[in-house]
């Protein structure tokens, strides 16, 4: 269940210790893989997937804050990229921008397709979402969400193809 900041003050007082400053990196916890596919996941592959996925949050954050779709190119592909690009155009048309800062990731790789062409992971993520109308801050949320993410390999890295928040 997502929770807005207005009703999270008590929870915040508990969670305040691990919460880092804006410039600091998110806390990352990687659960052991719980694969329900037949393909063995090499540690090198798992490491690359996690690294590239975490990097995609940086791209996403910069792109949505500056409404610059090209910043997604390195880390997103397919549906995920199309949807985020659409969001950015809508933000720009309405004169708003958003600032996303990931605070903590609890990651688990759950599926590696038999052909090796897709990896699914679940991210129980905690992030701050700040919404601006021009330069005026409208709201700030701390969000806990369960993201279902599918990454697919390209020439040099894994890119996010499906990026979807679920009700926890």
């Amino acid at each position: 269940m997502m929770t807005s900041i207005g009703s999270m003050l008590v929870i915040f007082s508990v969670l305040v210790v691990p919460v880092a400053g804006w410039a600091e990196q998110a806390a990352v916890r990687v659960e052991p893989s719980n694969l329900h596919g037949p393909r063995t996941l090499q540690q090198e592959t798992a490491t690359a997937v996690i690294r590239d996925y975490l990097q995609s949050w940086q791209s996403l954050s910069s792109a949505l804050e500056q409404n610059r779709a090209e910043l997604l190119d390195q880390d997103f592909v397919g549906t995920a990229k199309d949807k985020l690009t659409g969001t950015m155009h809508e933000q720009a048309a309405l004169g708003i921008h958003t600032r996303y800062r990931d605070r903590a990731h609890d990651l688990q790789i759950v599926f590696y397709s038999p052909d090796g062409l897709s990896i699914q992971l679940i991210d129980n993520v905690e992030y701050d979402e700040q919404i601006f109308e021009h330069d005026k801050a409208l709201t700030m949320q701390r969000v806990h969400a369960r993201y279902v993410v599918v990454l697919t390999p390209t020439e040099t890295r894994w890119r996010v193809r499906i990026f979807q928040a679920e009700i926890e």
Binding site: M2, T3, K83, I131, L138, Q141, V143, Q164, A165
Partner: peptide, 25 residues
């Protein structure tokens, strides 16, 4: 139509209010 977490924000001058909700597939 895109599934995910959303915030609805009401803005009237300097007043705002907001509530979160979800879009499910």
């Amino acid at each position: 139509y895109n599934a995910g977490h959303y915030v609805a924000i009401l803005v009237a001058g300097s007043n705002t209010d907001n509530t979160a909700f979800d879009v499910v597939p």
